[in-house]
């Protein structure tokens, strides 16, 4: 497993919002189930002193960390204030910031990621479903019941498509070490390269599934950087050029990012690329 384990203490930023509230409860349900620590505190400006599902709320991350031992933050702050929330977390000493928020302006993300780096804070996302290590910990919004513990790592730019693939793996009897959604935006903190480097150092992980999309060439960069056995799936082969398919990151850019040429380049690296999600379990068995 990578990034975090059972022992991680988590805070939730904007814990008093609808999503923050709902997922704090789910994260803590999961923590109870696996014997982890879960969400120990929340932060929301002006809401200090409240409680959300029994979790105490503070005005700032710094105040929360004064009273509680936490190293990770899950961020549900609205788009226009989310980059500020990442910087606040990094500044206060948070080591791992998981950003669920979507539609953050890309200039904000660039600044927040650069600032977090200065403070040795690892950023996952934005526009990420978070991460889930079955039997260990859940930071974010992934539905835990689809996953099962095992030796396959999953790295994805998508949310629900990840659940689809995890469901296929679980049904085929293939468990997962950590499932990490790195986010669908053009600029993200942890990339395929970074997540694969984490998996290489993880004794649990024997192989990795990479779920990519049209746009950019981060999938290919990641595959080149690793010695782990990898199976890839790239969504968007039917996407017409120059059309938006929901993610800013999924805009096809001048040939380099379209799905077909991406698949061609990945295949040229002797990596198997599934033509549909249901093919992934069979291909991953072949490399285990």
């Amino acid at each position: 497993m990578i990034y975090a384990d059972k022992s991680v203490g988590v805070i939730v930023q904007n814990i008093t919002g609808r999503q923050g509230r709902f997922h704090t409860e789910l994260m803590n349900d999961y923590a109870r189930e696996v014997g982890g620590r879960g969400v120990v505190a929340g932060a929301a400006p002006g809401k200090g002193g409240q409680e959300v599902h029994g979790v105490p709320v503070y005005n700032t991350v710094r105040e929360a960390l004064r009273e509680h031992d936490a190293t990770a933050s899950v961020i549900f702050v609205p788009a226009m204030a989310a980059a500020d929330a990442v910087m606040e977390a990094a500044h206060a000493g948070i080591e791992l910031a998981v950003v669920i928020t979507e539609h953050i302006p890309v200039h904000d993300t660039m600044k927040a990621v650069a600032y977090a780096e200065l403070h040795d804070c690892t950023v996952i996302g934005p526009n990420s479903p978070g991460l889930l290590s079955p039997g260990e910990c859940k930071l974010g919004i992934m539905p835990a019941h689809l996953a099962t513990r095992g030796g396959v790592g999953v790295i994805s730019r998508s949310g629900t498509l990840t659940y689809e693939v995890v469901d296929e793996l679980t049904r085929a009897g293939i468990g997962q070490s950590t499932i990490v959604g790195i986010g669908g935006d053009p600029v993200i903190g942890q990339t395929f390269v970074d997540a694969l480097a984490e998996f290489e150092d993880d004794p649990w992980t024997e192989a990795v599934v990479i779920i990519g999309e049209v746009g950019g060439n981060l999938e290919e960069e990641g595959i080149r950087s690793t010695d782990l056995p990898v199976v890839a799936y790239i969504a968007g082969v039917s996407a017409p050029p120059e059309k938006r398919m929901g993610h800013a990151g999924a805009i096809i850019e001048g040939g380099e990012g379209d799905a077909r040429s991406k698949i061609r380049r990945i295949s040229a690296l002797d990596v198997l690329v599934a033509s549909r999600p249901s093919e992934i379990p069979e291909l991953i068995r072949g490399v285990l």
Binding site: G159, M245, G246, A250, R276, P277
Partner: peptide, 15 residues
Amino acid sequence: NGAGLTMSTLDLIEF
């Protein structure tokens, strides 16, 4: 729901 899953659905139709 979700850009990736929806795109993947389109791809499967083409498949």
